[in-house]
Simulated scan of single mutants.
Amino acid sequence: MPVLIVIPARHASTRYPGKPLVGLKGASGQAKTLIERSWLAARAVSGVDRVVVATDDDRIRAAAKGFGAEVVMTSPDCANGTERVAEAAEALGGGFEIVVNLQGDAPLTPAWFVEDLVAGLTADPVAEVATPVLRCDGRGLNALLDDRRAGRVGGTTAVFGRDRHALYFSKEVIPYTGQSFADDTFTPVFHHVGVYAYRPAALAAYPLWEAGPLERLEGLEQLRFLERERPVLCVEVEARGRQFWELNNPEDVPRIESMMAEMGLD
């Protein structure tokens, strides 16, 4: 089953311009750019036939080619990563049964998150899209709540039904719990991991749909599928001792570097 991973990256991020080229220091103190660390995360996934970086920026293209990545140039008019991935997949000529969007701000994504995601979508004949969710422990939930109290837009949370099909995604912390949890205690809140696996037909249709009010309000691209009543499978993944965080704001750089040092990741 041919699988393509596309890493969408743009320089003109609203919250953090130039984010893909920001340096992140590993456990040894060596710095690599965010886009390179995301590419290395993609390359570590087994069962993948091709990995490409999709960008509209010459600086990102030059950096990616410098560390050996294949690059597809896309339009600056892409509204989000899913539209950029759709354009890149079309430019490559198709031929893939599953296309994975490994967003370029998630360098701590373990390979098994993506492997489990592909397996989950393959096993669900109804879902058109799949995305991983990670059950928060108290430490992770408190980090999400701290961001919201500080007025920062940080991680995204997800709620889903018994069939694991998504009900909603939000930049608010949902569901509301009103409880406090110890750092090592599991909570009922699921952190959405910014990775998507699409069936090609759903991916190709996505740019043709107008963004709905929920997508515009939340700024979450996956809500376009829900607003079109397209089933999105939430695949629960296990941390296996790994910490996970996305780089959304400048304040996330020291947080991610601290996690990398703690886990001994270079």
Rank of each mutant, 00 (worst) to 15 (best):
V153Q: 12
L102I: 00
A27S: 12
V71M: 09
N80A: 07
D266H: 12
N80E: 07
E257Y: 10
V71H: 02
M259A: 15
W39H: 10
S258K: 15
A204D: 11
F181C: 03
G95F: 14
A79E: 15
P175R: 12
G212A: 05
V6A: 11
G94F: 01
P17M: 02
C136R: 04
E251S: 14
A106L: 06
A158S: 10
D116R: 11
R148N: 10
V126M: 06
G140P: 00
W209T: 06
F225T: 01
L233W: 03
W112T: 00
G18P: 05
V159K: 04
A150W: 02
E97T: 03
V126A: 13
V22P: 01
C78S: 14
A201Y: 05
V118M: 01
G194T: 04
L214F: 08
V48W: 08
V235D: 02
A106P: 01
L220Y: 00
V85E: 02
L21R: 07
T122L: 11
A204M: 09
V3K: 10
E128V: 07
E87H: 09
A239W: 10
Q103H: 03
V45I: 06
E97S: 09
V153L: 13
G151K: 12
L144Q: 14
D137T: 15
V45K: 01
R199H: 07
M73L: 14
F186W: 03
T82K: 05
I256A: 08
R139W: 15
A261I: 08
P125I: 01
L233N: 00
D252K: 04
D266G: 12
R230T: 11
V159L: 06
D77C: 10
A12R: 11
R15D: 15
F190A: 02
P200I: 04
E251T: 11
R164Y: 14
E87A: 08
T187C: 05
L247P: 05
A182N: 11
D252P: 04
D124I: 02
Y196F: 09
A91N: 13
R139E: 15
S28Q: 11
P254G: 11
D49N: 13
A261M: 11
V53A: 03
L108K: 01
W39I: 04
S46E: 14
T177E: 14
Q30T: 15
C234M: 12
R224E: 10
T109R: 00
E221P: 02
E172F: 06
A127N: 06
L203S: 02
G241C: 08
A202M: 07
E215A: 13
G18D: 09
C78F: 09
N248D: 11
G154L: 04
G155W: 01
V45R: 03
G155C: 05
R242F: 03
F169W: 09
L102G: 00
K32N: 09
I256P: 03
K32S: 10
L24C: 06
